[in-house]
């Protein structure tokens, strides 16, 4: 039987608004993503994409329903346990990279390992392996401010994969890149996901990027429409080519 990496079961999320009706960001969302699948979520601004990612990352809790990450119901976990879950089972990639400007490329990659308290030697080895994989092996000591946008996102991808997470969540991972870089970064991300055996759930505005996923779901006013289309594109860029 295929292992389920991420599962939503009748998940609803509402936010209190001062005086007015509560705002319903997600409504009765249910899905299962098996390990190794890639899913793209498309939708307009304010449709509930970010809320979906926050719940999937155990950053937020559902108002009702169950969110199961790596086999654990996040509602049953304490704030600390949810943080520890993110260290081991969840990787995050952001549109604006969110790299720390005071740290080098290598230090940014190993940051989750520092938080988890893993040995430095192990982290250094893993960071070198990942940076080599994305073609930035010789940039380890460089300050991140000196990288291009595409390079920054590749560093962020390395960071997200450091702990070999079961689920990788990406919020507009190519939204801040030009078309050429966007394609290259997305291709690399999908390639790495498959190599690492992770599951990818990413949010995008771009139909071209969404088309690279195994499945494309759409979200509208908090309601998710799950479908299983055929993949329409294949990986075309390699890390070597990107250099």
């Amino acid at each position: 039987m295929t292992e389920t990496a991420l599962e939503f079961e009748h998940v609803t999320k509402t936010y209190d608004t001062s005086g007015a009706e509560p705002f319903r960001a997600l409504h009765d969302v249910s899905f299962q993503i098996p390990r190794g699948r890639t899913v793209a979520v498309v939708g307009r601004s304010g449709s509930g994409k970010s809320t979906l990612l926050h719940l999937a990352a155990a950053i937020d809790l559902p108002t009702s329903g169950r969110v199961v990450v790596g086999g654990r119901d996040i509602s049953s976990l304490s704030d600390g346990d949810r943080s520890r879950l993110r260290r081991t089972d969840v990787g995050l990639v952001f549109q604006f990279f969110h790299l720390l400007p005071g740290l080098s490329v290598r230090d940014n990659v190993v940051l989750p390992g520092w938080i988890a308290g893993r040995p430095q030697s192990e982290l250094d080895r893993r960071a070198r392996e990942l940076l080599d994989r994305v073609g930035l092996g010789h940039y380890g000591a460089r300050p991140v401010q000196k990288l291009s946008g595409g390079e920054m996102q590749r560093v962020a991808i390395c960071r997200s994969l450091l702990a070999r997470p079961k689920v990788l969540l990406a919020d507009e991972p190519t939204g801040n890149l030009d078309d050429e870089n966007a394609r290259r970064v997305m291709s690399l991300l999908l390639e790495l996901i498959r190599e690492e055996g992770s599951t990818l759930l990413f949010v995008t505005h771009s139909e071209e990027m969404a088309a690279l996923a195994d499945e494309i779901w759409s979200i509208h006013s908090g309601t998710l429409q799950v479908s299983a289309p055929e993949p329409t594109a294949t990986l075309t860029a390699s890390p070597t080519a990107m250099n």
Binding site: S83, R84, L85, H98, L100
Partner: peptide, 15 residues
């Protein structure tokens, strides 16, 4: 934003 990043990367409050 930086603190939220730490939290999203798994840092617990005492950290």
């Amino acid at each position: 934003a930086e603190l939220a990043l730490y939290r999203s990367l798994g840092a617990v409050r005492p950290q």
